[in-house]
């Protein structure tokens, strides 16, 4: 009963990765770390039994949205001030 160890581990990792993607100054690195965040989220949803949502997140969150973010940063300055 209750939260399993696997879920707890991933939830804690999620917080770490979320903070990390906002903490780094390089926007490309930020986008890539955000892809890791999305992938962990996908893993968590697959474990929760939401297979369709996990599939969507794997294609959209970890795939397309990373590419779109990097494509945008390509046209902007790569370094952020904070």
């Amino acid at each position: 009963m209750g939260l399993e160890l696997f879920n707890t581990l991933i939830l804690c990792l999620l917080v770490v990765v979320a903070v990390l993607s906002l903490w780094v100054r390089d926007l490309v690195v930020s986008a890539v770390v955000f892809a890791i965040y999305s992938f962990l989220m996908c893993l968590l949803w697959a474990e929760m039994g939401a297979v369709d949502v996990a599939f969507t997140e794997a294609t959209v969150g970890a795939g397309v949205s990373t590419v779109v973010l990097i494509a945008t940063v390509f046209n902007l300055k790569r370094k952020a001030k904070d």
């Binding site: 906002l22 955000f34 965040y37 949803w45 949502v53 973010l69 952020a80 904070d82």
Partner: peptide
């Protein structure tokens, strides 16, 4: 956050947190 792209990443994290809540 100062950078607009960082703000958007924050927005995505916000959104994913809400989606996570709903799914769970």
């Amino acid at each position: 956050k100062n950078n607009l792209i960082k703000k958007l990443i924050g927005m995505s994290i916000f959104q994913t947190a809400i989606i996570l809540f709903y799914v769970s």
